[in-house]
Every structure is written in C-alpha cells, then in structure tokens.
Design a binder for these strands. Structure first.
Length: 599
RNA sequence: GGGAUCGUAGCUCAGCUUGGUUAGAGCGCCGGCCUGUCACGUCGGAGGUCGCGGGUUCGAGCCCCGUCGGUCCCGCCA
C-alpha cells in the first residue's frame, strides 16, 4: 500500500462496493476482540466502517489486529463483504457491509486519549480546550467545523453573485480612540510606536468605496481586547459588507438574502418575513434592543397609575424621574413565595432592587404589596399589562433603562422556565432608528452608540450640537432569537458632517485630524454615499447550528479569561525580543496557567 | 473591576451538610479467556500531591483566608 492511495472515506463504504478491494485509512475507533475474530471500527471525518480480522485469512495481520488500540492510525486493504441480515447494523450508514482485511499498516500508534473520541462522552470544557485536536476529532464537533466551512463558502458565493468583491484589508493598523480596547502590536522598525489590530475593517471598507470598488465584502477576523462571554471571543470573524449609493432598504435587502441563503445552507427554514422595530419601540415593548420576539410577555408602563398610590417603592422611583414598568406572565398567579424570591435575584445584576408582584386568583387580587398599592390601582396596573385572572403581574420601579433591563431579564427567565419557545422556530428582526449617541458616565461625554462614522438621520443633523440625545442614526441591527447577529449603518460621506459628529463626541479638530485625518482627507476627493453591515459569523453559526457557546463553532477558541489552554498563550517572551521593541515590563505576570501546578 | 458556581483516580462524578482507622463508583486502562461483535461478554489487576499555598484543630478532601484555573452573568464590548 503506497501512502497516497485511498479508495474512499470510511463513512462512504456501501453495498455498491461489494467484493471490491478497497484501501482505507483512518483512526481505530474501537476494537472488539472475540478471540479468533476481531472487529475494528475505522473512523475518519465521514464516519466509520467495520473491519473484520480473522485467523484463517492472514495470521500476521490477525495478530497485529489484536495489538490495535483506540486512535491508532492505520491503513488497511481488504474486500467489502455483505454482513448478512442477522449481522447488519441498521443504525450505521455503512452497517450493511464490512471490510475483510487482508493487509494492514500501522501508520502511527497512539497513547490512550484523555477522553473517549465519542459524541456522547461527558468531558469538561477545560479538557476539550486543552486537547482541542482530540475534541475536534469527535464527530459532532468535527461536523460543526465542517458546517461553518459551508456557511462561509455560501456567504462568499451569495455575495459574489450580487457583485460584491472580496478585498483584504490590513491587520496591522492604527489605534483609534472610539470603540473597544485595541490589541496593540509593537513596531520594531519604529520602536516605541504601535500598530493596532482591527476591531473591524470599518475605515478601510469605507476607503474601498472612495476607491470606487462600489461593492465590497470580506470574511475577516476582528480583534477586541474586552472581557469574554459565551458569545464573545477576543478574536472573531465578521462577514463585512459595504456598498456605494445605497439606501437602508438596499443594505437590508442584501443582508436578508444573505441570511436566507445561510439558513438554507444550515438546513433551516428562515421565517417568512423580517420584522422591523424602531429602537424606541423595542425598548418600550421588550425592554431590550435585541429582543427575542418568538414569544409574548410584552412590557407595559404603569407609571401613571403607580403615581396615584402611596407605595414608597413606586413613589421614590417616580420622584427620581424613573418609571414603573411591568409584564404579565399567563397562568402563574399561584407562583410560590420561594419562586417570587428567586425573581429578585434575576433582576439584581441589572440594578433592580426588587420585583413587585400582583396577581388575580379566582377574581381576587393578591400580592405582598397589595395593601400598600390598594385594590383600585392594583387592578388598573394588572389591566395595563394585560394580566387576566390566573395571571401574574410583575412590576419594577426604577430609572427607565433599569426597569427595561430588569423586565427584559424576567421575560427571558420565564421564556426558559416555562419553555415558551419552540427551538425549531426562529425569529429575524431588524431594529433600526437607534439613538446616535449615548452618555458615557466614565468619560463624561457623548459616545457613538454604533460608531462615529454613522450617518445621522438627515432631519436630525441640526440637533447635533443642540440636542445630541435626540439625534437618531441611520443604523440597523439584525436580531435573531434575541441575539444580535449583524449591525450596520449608512455612513457619513461628507467631511463637514463628519467633523460635526467628531465635535459632538468631544474631539477637538486637532484630535480628529490626528486620529482620522486620512479619512477626512479621502473625503475631499469625491466620496460616494455608502453604507453597509457586518455579520458576526461565529455567533450566527452558533445559532444556526444550535450551539450554546461561540466556542463550539471556533476550531481553536480561548477560555473566558482569554487563555489558550492548548498552547498556553499568552506567554512571556524572550528579553531579546523586548529589547528590540524597546519595551520594559513593569509587572510580573501570573506564575502559571496550569491548574495542576497552581502556585 | 464585581458577583455566582465548580476543581477528588486518565475521564465523569459521589464523599463536604455533622472534621475522626485504609477516600469510593461508573467508564477507561493493563492482563487472561472467548468465531459474529457493534456500549461485545467474562475473570482478574493496577491506578489518588483530594488544583496550589497558608491557617484553625489532637486530627482537614471536609472549616477559614489567599491564590491559580474552568463556566455563567454584571460592568465592558456592537
């Protein structure tokens, strides 16, 4: 058997190969040794097929088969035989046949893996990440990476077919003040200066429009040095899109066709239509700018009724210009005291002091705070959130945004607790008309909610200086099942407006010139109106493939503390490397990443 | 930066509430037997710095403090 020869993949062997002599290669999945008959499952990325070794074929090969262990890499030559009705395995694609092995090469022996290479093996994520190459060898994890490949190729095909050009942009770029924390890369040739890895190719794709490419896309890695989450990694992949002369509808159209294509590629049915909500509507109805619209439990505001009560909780919130908001949970009027207490824990992380509950059981009002609120107002509050007999009304009194966040959390809590969504059903939703700015308490100034290159709505341009909080952006997010999967905007293409926005953000003209001078310069030479969108590929793949974590669709992800458990990065570097970069380390790093070593 | 939770055999876990001979289970691993297995069966065996450091105690896997690491969340991030 020569190294390059292979008849087909293991998972592809069928009855059509009957009596053919095949050369197969793969990993030993399992050996079943019956004494003078040995079965071996041979696995590769397509599945596995049963090999049979028997004494009366070839004694040497048979004895070698007895020495096989899980994960040995072998090559075999043998004849495909029908298993017969009694011995066939109906659960396997290859189960009707088996390969009678005449010859075998052990290409590589294997140590016993730290965990079984099986889908149903229970393995901690720590183990999976440390031995990622073994985790990826497991069929289901392997398939996720294959599926991600398909999604990427489909995206490229779809966008190319609409005339978009895939253009690469630099990874070594310029640090920009807005947005996330940059990853810095020290320059050796100009020691003391730094490149920044791109948070996104935002400015380069805009410059592609200035260059006249008209339609650009890129499947591109982005880097943000912020804390990680189940759906956030330090580096992640965007499907980045930009086009010239669009209106919002055109960008949304491109995005919708792409989304439908990706749903199809994943074997899912996209919802018939993409719903649309303004940001203000989303906050009012769901308390969230990326609502899960697959179920009800919509929010209501009861501030007016609450203002008529003497209830201290309501009074103090309303006196501080806050709101009393609530929602109705159908059929939960008989919720236990213990379960109600648990709700307080749900809202705590979002700044809520507590949840006020009212309910109507068999016509009678109930609730701990009922005596403070009074029957009349209580009935009105329940009516206002649509609570009927047998329903539970939950209310939060707090600043408007806090009340929204708390009730949104309660919505999701009951979604999961009561199983309100069908996992096979998906919702796609555009949220648009975002506020252009939000107030940063840390920086004591306005910051761009999307980014500083977003075009404000034309009719709001006059308010940039006078009423920045009222300015709406021509920005839009695509939301799937309560997750933001993409976001974009029409961009500013005039230096004049761009300077006004920089000023609203508190940049002096000098700062703007220093940080974004190249953009303002480019805008002088004929810039087409342009806009675009970027999809978070990892997050979208996660949702389309039904994964719980973004790490499941990334071949080599990092832990939530930004470590690679496989390579032990980040790590210290040689003093010589630091010298070349003219860098001195002030603080000694933690001594170990290895949990087995500790201190 | 903060909160929650977890760390015991190669893996997944029990033991911790109430500190007390020699720390258990399943799977895996090693060896014997077995011609139709496919979670093969069967008989036998090996395997532990209880993440790490310190403290309390006559005595710590168990209690306390710190630390490292995994996960989830808030802040942060779009």
């Amino acid at each position: 058997m020569s190294l390059g020869e292979r008849s087909c993949y293991c998972g592809e062997v069928r009855e059509s190969h009957l009596n053919q002599r095949l050369i197969l290669k793969g990993w030993v999945r399992r050996r079943r040794d019956l004494g003078s008959l040995v079965f071996v499952d041979l696995r590769d990325r397509t599945g596995f097929v049963q090999l049979v070794f028997s004494e009366d074929r070839d004694a040497a090969t048979f004895l070698a088969a007895k020495e096989l262990r899980p994960e040995f890499v072998i090559a075999v030559e043998g004849v495909v035989k029908l298993r017969g009705e009694k011995d066939a395995n109906v659960h396997l694609a290859t189960g009707a046949v088996e390969v009678e092995v005449a010859q075998m090469d052990v290409l590589c022996e294997a140590a016993t893996p730290p965990f079984p290479i099986e889908d149903d093996a229970l393995v901690s994520e720590e183990m999976r990440l440390k031995y990622r190459y073994l985790d990826l060898r497991r069929p289901f994890q392997n398939q996720r990476i294959v599926a991600r490949h398909r999604l990427m190729q489909r995206a490229r095909k779809q966008l190319s077919s609409e005339g978009f050009l895939e253009i690469e942009t630099p990874f070594l770029g310029k640090s920009t003040p807005e947005g996330a924390r940059d990853f810095l890369v020290p320059s050796r040739l100009r020691a003391g200066t730094f490149y920044a890895l791109p948070q996104s190719p935002q400015l380069f794709k805009q410059l592609c429009m200035v260059a006249g490419f008209d339609r650009y896309f890129q499947v591109v890695r982005c880097f943000r040095d912020e804390d990680l989450r189940a759906d956030r990694q330090l580096e992640f992949t965007q499907i980045d899109i930009e086009m010239s002369f669009p209106d919002e509808e055109m960008v949304m159209g491109v995005a919708e066709r792409l989304t439908r294509a990706l749903f199809e590629e994943a074997g899912l049915t996209a919802p018939a239509s993409f719903a649309r909500l303004t940001w203000a509507e989303a906050m009012e109805r769901y308390g969230c700018d990326k609502p899960d619209t697959r179920f009800g439990l919509e929010l209501g505001t009861v501030s007016e009724v609450a203002a008529k009560t003497e209830f201290g909780v309501f009074r103090s919130a309303l006196d501080a210009q806050g709101a009393v908001r609530g929602l109705a949970v159908p059929g939960q009027a008989n919720i236990s005291r213990k379960e109600l207490d648990a709700l307080n824990e749900v809202v705590k992380p979002f700044g809520g002091k507590g949840v006020v509950s009212l309910m109507r059981r068999n016509g009678a009002l109930a609730g701990q705070a009922l005596k403070h609120i009074g029957e009349g107002p209580a009935a009105a509050m329940l009516a206002a959130v649509g609570a009927k007999d047998g329903d539970l009304g939950l209310f939060v009194a707090a600043p408007y945004e806090t009340a929204c966040a708390c009730l949104s959390a309660l919505r999701l809590y009951f979604r999961d607790k009561l199983g309100l969504v069908d996992k096979d059903h998906h919702a796609l939703l555009w949220v648009h008309r975002f506020p252009m700015f939000e107030w940063s308490r840390d920086d004591n100034r306005w910051v761009a909610r999307h980014h500083p290159f977003t075009m404000p709505r034309e009719e709001h341009l006059d308010m940039l200086e006078s009423d920045p909080q009222k300015v709406e952006a021509q920005a839009y997010d695509l939301v799937m099942d309560g997750n933001e999967i993409g976001g974009g905007s029409l961009r500013i293409h005039s230096g004049k407006i761009q300077r006004k926005v920089f000023r609203a953000l508190g940049f002096s003209d000098e700062e703007a010139q220093d940080k974004f001078g190249f953009l303002l310069e480019a805008f002088k030479y004929g810039t087409p109106p342009h806009g675009g969108i970027a999809f978070g590929l990892d997050r979208l793949a996660m949702l389309l493939l039904g994964c719980e974590s973004i790490r499941d669709v990334i071949a080599f992800p990092k832990t939530t503390s930004g470590l690679c458990l496989m390579t032990q990065s980040p790590s210290e570097v040689e003093p010589k490397q630091l010298e070349e970069l003219a860098i001195e380390i002030k603080k000694s790093p933690p001594r170990s990443h290895d949990p087995k070593e500790g201190n």
